[in-house]
């Protein structure tokens, strides 16, 4: 157990402090400071539970797509179990990476040209939306406001 304030609150205060310095920084360093602010904001959003949940949904969609893993999917019944047994997320992340690699290969070979089109699109949209929620929610609000969380 850490002492308060926790990481997210600390990061937020640190960002506010850096923002207050923008006005006194020379032009060249201002650009650097803006990049630092952006990087801090992305990291903060990435560590939010909602972002992790989006990854859980992504893995679920990937498993659904893979017909050969039907038995496995029925066994898992939702994906929360994965997070529970996989405390540091290593196995979760490696399964996510492995399934994305398989999907990328299948898409390139044209295996999904005719079939699974709806399921594929649902997954691809989910991936893009989840990434934008973390990396650039303003862009998401501008071009796909229906998926914006804010």
């Amino acid at each position: 157990m850490h002492n308060q304030p926790y990481g997210r609150a600390l990061l937020s205060t640190a960002r506010d402090t850096l923002k207050s310095l923008l006005g006194v920084l020379p032009e060249a360093q201002r650009y650097d400071a803006l990049m630092v602010l952006n990087a801090m904001a992305i990291s903060a959003r990435e560590s939010e539970p909602a972002a992790r949940h989006d990854c859980v949904v992504e893995l679920d969609l990937l498993r659904r797509l893979d017909s050969s893993s039907r038995a496995e999917r029925e066994g898992v019944d939702g994906t929360v179990v994965v997070g529970a047994v996989d405390v540091d997320g290593t196995r979760f992340d490696s399964e996510l990476a492995r399934r994305n690699k398989q999907l990328a290969q299948a898409l390139r070979s044209g295996r999904f040209d005719a079939s699974s089109d709806r399921a594929i699109r649902e997954l691809l949209w989910h991936q893009v939306i989840a990434k934008l929620r973390v990396s650039n929610p303003k862009y998401l609000a501008e071009f796909a406001p229906e998926f914006s969380r804010n």
Binding site: N100, L107, L124, V128
Partner: peptide
């Protein structure tokens, strides 16, 4: 190193 399904699609 990573896979990029949207780009592949």
């Amino acid at each position: 190193p990573d896979a990029h399904p949207v780009l592949e699609w």
